[in-house]
Structure formats: C-alpha cells, structure tokens
Simulated assay, not measured.
Amino acid sequence: MTQRDVVFPPTRRALYERNRYSPAVRSNGFLFISGQVGTTEDGSPEPLLENQVRQAFHNLNAILQEAGGSFDDVVDVTLFIVDPASKFDTIWNIALAEFWGDAPHPTVTAVGVTWLYGFDFEIKVIARTPEGA
C-alpha cells in the first residue's frame, strides 16, 4: 500500500491522532477533507449553532490553507445537519455571507441526520489542490 499524503492543520494534530483519523488526504490533484464540526481546540462543541458553523468553517479553512488552498478550491460540499428544517437557513446564510461569497458556488448536498456526536452541523468537502487546479 502506498503512503497516504495526509494534511494536518498546525494546531490540531493531537486531536486527530487521539481520534485516529486523517483530517485530509491529497490524491490525484484533489484534497479529500474529513467532516469538520464546530469544535474548540480541545474537541468540545461550541454551544451555539452559529458558533458551531463558524468554527467548523474556520477548522476547514485551516486544513485548506495548510494544503496551500482556499475556499475557492472547494468543488464539492456535503453538509450533515441535525434537524435541517429548523437549522438549514441559518447554516447556509452564514456559509454564503461569510465564506463562499458570490457565485459560482461549489456543488452542495445537504443530508439530515439524527446524531452527530453532540454537534448540530458537519461539513465535508473535496477541493482541488493547487497543483491539480
């Protein structure tokens, strides 16, 4: 088996090692990023939905930057939401206004789930790597 080209954000490596998964893996011109939730540095959830969303995007951005990319490189997004009927608009308004900006936007799939380990929102993305752009 070939060695995975793993990308770790600078301040959260211990969290990923403790939970035994890779935050992101580069492969064939793409960066596959594990789902990001609104955690503080110690892994605990941000209590308010708005803060969870912003923190999840900040955690995502740290991985993108470590790989030499940005939100502009994201091509595909999957959102996991507990109770999407009451939370989707809040999440999507923050995402568009503060992180994605103007169209064209990446593709998006939103999935309603019943449980996210105590979180309300998770975002998983696939991005082009700078050398793959």
Rank of each mutant, 00 (worst) to 15 (best):
I126D: 06
L79Q: 06
K87H: 13
V108P: 00
G69K: 05
Q55N: 10
R128P: 01
V108Y: 07
E17K: 00
T2M: 03
I123V: 11
V25S: 01
V53E: 04
G69S: 12
V7K: 00
V25Y: 00
Q55I: 10
D102I: 01
F80D: 03
F8K: 00
G43A: 04
S34R: 07
L64T: 09
F119K: 01
D89P: 04
P9A: 01
L79T: 02
F71R: 09
N51R: 15
L64Q: 07
F88E: 13
F71D: 14
Y117F: 12
D42V: 08
E46G: 05
N51D: 15
A97C: 04
S44E: 09
A67K: 06
N19M: 01
R12N: 01
D120S: 14
D89S: 14
D89A: 10
V77P: 06
A133H: 09
V111T: 12
R26W: 07
F121I: 03
N59Y: 09
A56I: 05
T78K: 15
T107F: 08
R20E: 02
A24P: 00
G35S: 08
Q36K: 11
W92H: 11
R54M: 10
W92S: 02
V82E: 08
V7Q: 00
D72H: 15
L60W: 07
N51S: 15
E66S: 15
D76Q: 12
G69L: 04
T90R: 15
G101M: 09
A56F: 09
D83C: 07
S86M: 05
F30V: 01
A103D: 08
N93I: 03
F80P: 00
G118N: 14
P84L: 05
P45Q: 05
V82L: 14
I33Q: 06
F121C: 11
V25W: 00
E66I: 05
I33F: 06
P84F: 02
Q3K: 06
M1Q: 05
I91F: 03
A67Q: 10
G118T: 12
V77D: 02
V75I: 09
A110V: 13
V111C: 08
V25D: 00
H58M: 12
A103T: 12
G68C: 07
I123K: 05
S22F: 03
D73K: 06
F8R: 00
G68A: 03
G101C: 10
V125M: 05
T107L: 11
K87P: 02
E131A: 13
A110Q: 06
P130R: 14
A56D: 08
A95V: 02
A95L: 10
P10I: 04
P23Q: 03
V113H: 04
S86E: 06
R18P: 00
V113S: 10
P10F: 04
T40Y: 15
F8L: 02
E66D: 07
G112N: 15
A24C: 02
T2D: 11
F32A: 03
A14F: 01
L60I: 13
G101Y: 14
T114G: 15
E41T: 12
G101Q: 09
W115C: 07
N59D: 12
D83M: 14
G35E: 09
V25G: 00
T40H: 14
F32Q: 05
D72M: 14
W100D: 01
R128A: 10
D89W: 12
L79R: 07
R4W: 00
P130K: 13
E66P: 02
G69V: 08
V108H: 07
V74L: 08
T2W: 05
I33S: 04
